[in-house]
């Protein structure tokens, strides 16, 4: 599934490039101004919208996972496909559903990210930033990915404004991975990775 997804991503990216060309489009959704200012800190409107919408998407995903029958089935299947099948859960359908669900979340994220500036066939590479986010937070921790996102975002922003000006151009993109390395040395399952239930 992972391989298929990566393959599909590269097919889609190339198709977009073929159809729309390799140059950037300007992209902007008209949304009411929601910029916030706290003393020295300014949150631009489109960022506030992005933050708000991610929190809503996050809440919806949580609700789905913990309060619906499909959510229970998803968590069961993620623990053991064979046990799930043995109790009549169609594991293949569940996998497809999870795939669709993540595609939907990514679509929201994609639109929001494009809204920050230009839209081109390379916008998708922003998704790579999700890797340090989930690994720092802990692969199997849902709250962890939220915290991980904040940590990585802060890290990028701080490095971008305080360290890069010292002459380290591009360090902003590397910093999260350095952070990831340090976190994994100390906590291999990530900051909030589940403590495995062990029996002896």
């Amino acid at each position: 599934m992972t391989i298929i997804t990566l393959g599909l991503a590269s097919v889609l990216r190339s198709s977009v490039q073929l159809i729309f060309g390799a140059h950037s489009y300007s992209f902007f959704i008209e949304l009411p101004n929601a910029s916030l200012e706290y003393g020295d800190i300014l949150f631009p409107s489109e960022r506030v919208w992005a933050g708000g919408l991610s929190i809503i998407a996050f809440a919806l995903v949580l609700f789905f996972l913990f309060r619906t029958r499909w959510g229970v089935a998803i968590r069961a299947t993620s623990e053991s496909q064979s046990k799930a099948m043995a109790f009549g859960i169609d594991a293949r359908f569940i996998l497809l559903m999870v795939w669709g669900l993540s595609a939907m979340c990514i679509a929201v994220a994609g639109v929001m990210i494009s809204n920050f500036g230009a839209l081109s066939y390379l916008t998708g590479s922003a998704g790579l930033r999700a890797i340090p986010v989930v690994l720092i937070g802990g692969m199997d921790s849902i709250g962890g990915s939220l915290i991980g996102g904040l940590i990585v975002g802060l890290c990028e922003a701080l490095v971008g404004s305080y360290i890069e000006p010292l002459g380290l151009v591009g360090f902003k993109d590397v910093a999260p991975y350095l952070l990831l390395l340090i976190v994994l040395f100390i906590r291999p399952y990530g900051l909030f990775g589940t403590v495995r239930i062990e029996r002896v």
Partner: peptide, 17 residues
């Protein structure tokens, strides 16, 4: 064959999926 990370109630719900 129970799901370790689900509660007892959720386990029963999963089997009735």
């Amino acid at each position: 064959p129970v799901f370790w990370y689900l509660t007892i109630e959720e386990n029963l719900a999963a089997a009735a999926y």
